[in-house]
């Protein structure tokens, strides 16, 4: 990092930042690259577990610029370095409360107060759980939401993936490299995943599919021993003895902290007006905390860019085009 890359000065103790960005996935870090280069003093409250969903992946093949693919965590490290190069301050703490009713806005992270003229909410989404008996107790003991992290522990074992979207099918394919038997348990009679992904799964002899089936309980003392399942089409139920359960039934937006201040839809996604604005002037939103359609690293980075540019316009700073 050289000084010539830095266009802004940090606020003194007790003064407000030009922008505080909450989150540290592709949306947040892209926003920070734009706001710092536009000379807005920028603080990223990135969360203890920083980097977002890409930290839980292996090779990312659909991010432009990396013809041979790139590891998700490596991509996030590069984005973070790029944001920090232009002077973004990165605090690896979770935001506990956000008072967006006063100006400057007040954010508390790890007990410390931060003031800001504008806020970009880019807190993303986290894994959705089944919320059935046994699930919570057995996380890390056979229950997982991250096949790329945990698949190698299921070498020569029997596992089930719950879900029917792209992420469920990807997890199942990852697991076939290790487990001897992989079941996909899906509550509908068809997948929501892309055609390419469906074909890969249907062609794989090691994957068996249970349609119209729901898991009602995960059973095990120190580790997963079996699951209880029922058909939602016929009135039948049964059990499956297995070693691992991978839950991939989608994501929920991380918007809890803002409830009461920021308008959310019935699913908890932040409502967007005029591209990146929320119901509060000066508070912008970017990424999967509002987008329930695209959910890609590249689209969320694009949303971050938009929010960064809109913050600069709001602060009356010029947007550099280089």
């Amino acid at each position: 990092m050289t000084d010539k890359d830095i266009f802004t000065i940090k606020p003194k103790e007790g003064e407000a930042w030009d922008v505080v960005i909450i989150g540290s996935g592709p949306a947040a870090l892209t926003a920070a690259i734009y706001t710092t280069r536009g000379a807005a003093s920028t603080l990223i409250l990135g969360g203890e577990s920083w980097g977002g969903q890409l930290m839980l992946t292996t090779t990312v093949d659909n991010f432009p610029g990396f013809p041979d693919g790139i590891q998700g965590p490596d991509l996030m490290n590069l984005m973070r370095k790029q944001a920090e190069r232009f002077g973004a301050e990165f605090v690896q703490k979770n935001v506990e409360t956000a008072d967006l009713g006063k100006k400057p806005f007040e954010l508390i992270a790890d007990g410390k107060k931060y003031l800001s003229r504008t806020v970009i909410i880019s807190t993303g989404a986290s894994d959705k759980w089944l919320a059935i008996p046994g699930e919570k107790e057995l996380v890390g003991r056979g229950v997982s939401t991250c096949a790329p992290c945990d698949a190698p522990f299921f070498k020569n074992k029997k596992v089930a993936v719950i879900g029917g979207g792209d992420s469920a099918l990807t997890e199942a394919l990852v697991l076939t490299k290790y487990a001897t038997e992989v079941f996909i348990i899906h509550r509908r009679d068809q997948f929501r995943a892309s055609a390419a992904m469906q074909q890969k799964v249907l062609d794989n002899k090691n994957i068996k599919i249970l349609w119209n089936t729901e898991v009602t309980e995960i059973v095990g003392k120190d580790k997963v021993e079996k699951i209880l399942i029922k058909s939602n089409k016929e009135n039948t139920s049964g059990e499956m003895v297995l070693d691992g359960v991978f839950v991939a039934i989608g994501h929920v937006p991380e918007s809890r902290v803002f409830k009461g201040h920021i308008e959310l839809d019935e699913k908890g996604y932040i409502k967007v007006n005029d591209h990146t604005k929320t119901n509060i002037e000066g508070v912008f939103v970017a990424g999967e905390v509002h987008d329930q359609h695209y959910k890609q690293a590249i689209t969320t980075a694009g949303f971050g860019c938009m929010a960064g540019m809109d913050v600069l316009r709001y602060l009356d700073k010029s947007v550099p085009s280089w």
């Binding site: 890390g140 003991r141 056979g142 997982s144 991250c146 992290c149 945990d150 522990f153 580790k223």
Partner: peptide, 22 residues
């Protein structure tokens, strides 16, 4: 019985006294 990483286990006097999964 580590089946997810990172798992961190605290040992004191040869015994496990706690673990953090993830």
């Amino acid at each position: 019985q580590v089946m997810s990483i990172p798992t961190t286990i605290l040992f004191k006097g040869s015994q496990e006294v706690g673990r953090q999964i993830g």
